[in-house]
Amino acid sequence: MGAVKRLVIGVLVMLIVSSSVVFAAGSDPWPTKPIELYIGWPPGGNVDLVVRAYLSTFSKELGVPVVVNYKPGAGGVVCAEYIARAKPDGYTIQEVSYSIISMQLLTVNTPITYNDFTFIMGHTGQNFAVVVRQDAPWKTFKEWVEYARKKPATYGVPGVYTSQSVVMDWIIKREGLKEVSVVPYQGGNELIAPVMGGHIDLALVAGNHVPLCEGGKLRTLLQFSGEVPDPDPAKVPFLTQAYPDCPDSLRAMVEIPVGLTGPKGMPAPIVQKLAQSLRKAVNEEGYKNFLKQSKRPLVTNWEGADAMKRAKMATDAYAAYLKQVGFVKK
């Protein structure tokens, strides 16, 4: 018993000593305690993967542990609201797709907008693409468009008002297609099985198609953002190549990055410290490999006022779209 007690006391003393060393070592007053990083989805999602890829370097750079918390609900909005209302001291931040806080907020009943956040740094984009099953009759996107002119066609979306589906909707209208049905699924993971099984012609996917394209089960017809994972990427056009007249606001929607945000009013030095540590973390070899594997782009131009401006552009275009399709926010 005595030995156990001594051991416990010893461990406690060690903990106290080591933590005071950590506190003493940093001349910078911030951060002095662990940072809570929130994710608005259950563990294992797209955003979670990104965070795990950079977390250890990020936390090493900051000198304090970064604790990941999950706060799922309402497609990320529950978490966004929580962050918007948190204390802007830098200890409560979230990793989120900027599309959630600039666009998706418009579709639910919440007073919060992108103005309630501090954009710390966007660092990676999505791999948004249009895919078909390998043995589908259409070799190019144009072929599918021609087919859809004559016959009833279908495509699956990960949600009706997601950024990809807004762009696709623009393409359908531009091509003047009348007989195309949009089949809504809930999230990109649900779309893979139906497109492989031939239940829908096309699927608008977000990264989870990468191994299936490389494995020869799916083919990319059109790439919205990110890199083409197919064996022959040269054959796949990007959105801007296939439709050079695509408005900038739509491009901003699909090129919107994933990144760190905090509540509005975070002190500039703290934001800088976070961005600086994150920049180091995302320029690590391990993280870059992760991006290469999942065919995601490294994004570096979404910081500070710049990010705010782009978010505004995407949000305004999105609001206009919602109005145009008659979506009523209750």
């Binding site: 294992g44 191994p211 299936l212 490389e214 494995g215 490999n289 992760f290 999942s294």
Partner: peptide, 12 residues
């Protein structure tokens, strides 16, 4: 996700 972090891509 766990496999992806280890550099193993799960697919066909």
């Amino acid at each position: 996700a766990a496999l992806m972090i280890h550099g193993v891509r799960v697919g066909p």
